[in-house]
Design a protein around this nucleic acid. Sequence first.
DNA 1: TTGCAATATTGTCGCGCTCTAAGTAAGGTC
DNA 2: GACCTTACTTAGAGCGCGACAATATTGCAA
Lengths: 337, 337
Amino acid sequence: MEDVAREAGVSRALVSLVMRERPNVSEERRRRVLDAAAKLGYRPNAMARSLASRRTKTVGVILDDLRNPFFAEIAGGVEELASQVGYQLLLAAGGRQARRERAALGALLEHRVSGMILVSPRMPASVIAAAAAEAPLVIVGRTVRGVNADSVLINESHGTELVLDHLVGLGHERIAHVDGGSGAGGPQRRSAYLRGMRNRRLGRHTLVIGGDFTEEAGVSAAAELLRLRELPSAVFAANDMVAAGLLGGFDRAGVDVPGDVSIVGYDNISIAHLAHVSLTTVDQPRTEMGRLALELLLDRIDNRRANEVRLIEPSLVVRSTTAPPRALAPPSVAAIA
Amino acid sequence: MEDVAREAGVSRALVSLVMRERPNVSEERRRRVLDAAAKLGYRPNAMARSLASRRTKTVGVILDDLRNPFFAEIAGGVEELASQVGYQLLLAAGGRQARRERAALGALLEHRVSGMILVSPRMPASVIAAAAAEAPLVIVGRTVRGVNADSVLINESHGTELVLDHLVGLGHERIAHVDGGSGAGGPQRRSAYLRGMRNRRLGRHTLVIGGDFTEEAGVSAAAELLRLRELPSAVFAANDMVAAGLLGGFDRAGVDVPGDVSIVGYDNISIAHLAHVSLTTVDQPRTEMGRLALELLLDRIDNRRANEVRLIEPSLVVRSTTAPPRALAPPSVAAIA
DNA sequence: TTGCAATATTGTCGCGCTCTAAGTAAGGTC
DNA sequence: GACCTTACTTAGAGCGCGACAATATTGCAA
């Protein structure tokens, strides 16, 4: 900085003012300083700047795994806004392990991030509460009671209701659910399914197949369903990967979708709309969720104190894996023949 | 740090030694210091540490877009290794725009990252060369001549050869290519296709449809192909998204895949293996690419100077979108009837 | 003329650490 | 008893800035 000042023939303080883009610097000096900086290849040191100003222009994001498109897209939303407002992104993955998440959390706090976004954290609430005391926090996809943080939540029960409304509207009664296990949204979707079935007086048709959020779970769920005396007329999968597994499993077994059985997924991942899949599913605006999370975080960095909870409303995307059940379907070509 | 030292009844220097996990500190003192730190909620300040030590434990990654699984998976590979070796990840997306990439580059350099990984950068070579002078650099998916950096490259022409071998082996001659535009690997695949066709004396069947790496490009390519007097017997798509678009477009037009036309993709994105897609495609080990890029970078940070180029060999994954062309296929059921 | 805002300078402190150099104290070794 | 080595302390400099505060220097209007 000294050198730049000398080169430009100005004071060190003025260089600092120019670098921070402060007002009240004449255009002429600004140019001289910038030219000198360019000539000398000077680049302000973000570390020194943060140390002196006690502010960093970085936010931390902790998520499960970048290779899961759901998380990657949320991170993409955060990144997009961050780069627009001049923030850097410090990213860490916890790999579904609370231990690794805590390590990542610690590292981000050592970097004195301005704030953090935790996406579906697995850590105990106490750890999150402690973190909230050290940096502004926004939590995505999980509720943590009594923590000073904002939340971005998906209205899982609404999403599930949309699915049930759609299927019941088509005439389905025997609607099974393939579970997502303990992953983000899994338990909520499951319990919303159970509740929704009861409320529709379909409790007797309730059927939950255990699983997780993988395609393999869908494949084995299909196998399990095929072993039943009678196939349900519709299956609500915990997410699209499971639905894809179901599709594959049924396809190989010669079961027609949606003729013999309707399938609904959850997430609307990019594959869902492909013609060969064309999966009816519940859409969640992931990029917007990331964006919103950072918006809330930036507000909070600017000293807003209220704990906001933003409920994201999912929507149903009807494609071609759902149809009325066999009994109610219009006579098929085979029947006519 | 002062406070921790006082609390633990030791000197400030010792606290520093403990925090840096240096040897020659007795277990007893180490415990006392760590306990005191925990009690006071002390956390070393990474900024101050970097400033004083002139080293940061952070690496920067610049990629196109996190919402593109290809990039997200590479980033995932980088992240995985980074967290294992105690490095932080500073991530920035360039959104396919050289301007934004340069801004991200500048920001990362201001943060004095230990090194950077550029994934398919769009920036001019001169900018990259300048960056290489400021920080260790590894470039993924692009060759930049005369730059002091390591590279991780995919052997695109080998991948393309695998595709052509496969299709020609099945008996195809009229093999069209849907282009990927100027994106990463696009031009290479295109020219490898042209060369490969010529070498196989199929130059007269060469047909390139313009496109980019999107599904929409695939859909409109399908439409364009359908307007021809005669459909090619096979189509080599620039990537899986394009292939998916082709599948959709052909499906809606009643064209049978692989009966009427075979389709090969490129990338082996997660959807490719789904039963309802089951796309024959070229696989690239993305996570390993990310991991390898960081390995090279860490070597380079430790002062290795040679410019290494690692060529990643893709492999062909044959699924069900490819078959012998109609003329050579065994008589169909319809023909028998 | 006085006044005053915008512009610029000078200088000093301190952010929270690392690093070096030099020293002390204890125990172990020959 | 001289000499290590290991464990620790003391002291200070300095990393590259930002944040003042105090002071000039300029126009330009009242």
